[in-house]
Amino acid sequence: MQWSTLFKKEMLENWHNKKWIWVPLVIILIAILDPISNYYLPQIIESVGGVPDGTVIELPEFTPAEVVMMSLGQFSSLGVLIIVLMSMGTIAGERKSGVSELILVKPVSFKNYITAKWAALLVIVWGSLFIGMLASWYYTNLLYGELSLTALLQIVFFYGLWFMLVISLSIFYNTLFKTPGLVAFLTIITIMLMSVITQVFAHVLEWSPNNLSSHIFEMLMTDSIPSDLIGSAIVTIAISIILVAASILTFKNKELAE
């Protein structure tokens, strides 16, 4: 009851501040950039000129799975950045502006407050990811070859988990600090650190969240869900839940004004 009040307000606010417009648009753009530019690369090079006559441009033929991976590759850098920027002020901004001083003196449960924000962000992110991948899927089918709808849905589900982790990290830092820029910085640093650790300890960290996309690639190649993908998914969900729980705990012990 109180949760749905908070959740509805978040959804409405995200509509008012146009997040529901720009996030999907940017995600679509990111998703289709590589599939299209790679397909038309020979024409692009030709029209720009500068290549001696008679040069034969040989480009590898991409499989649909590889094309999807291009989109995911862009998501893991630009996409993450967008999500971090979108979520950096969700709590920090309210505390900084002072509006939280009115909201949190009402008998609002911190669990509701934080999970409602978390859920509202997840809805945007998953929704945008779905729309973006739908666009990517369209061009993949048009330009490169068949990719099944089931495969698309699986990609959206599993890759969405990675975005969920990013959101959870951002929420966690949101409860610790009230400067949105600092929240964004720390979230990105943490993701980079996780990526380094995953690479260094690759042999033991097979289920690291950072490996989600390589396991997704494996899934597309073998046409079945590899157990490592399930493992990574479970680890990602677990870390997200821990982060949200930690956020609630920090908030409970926090001075909400200063």
Partner: peptide, 25 residues
């Protein structure tokens, strides 16, 4: 409680904010 410099969600109307506050309570 009314803080010294109350800040509201400026995109809400006065009515919406009051209903929201009431529902939270």
């Amino acid at each position: 409680y009314l803080p010294q410099y109350p800040v509201f969600y400026s995109w809400m109307t006065g009515m919406e904010f009051l209903v929201y506050s009431g529902q939270l309570a």
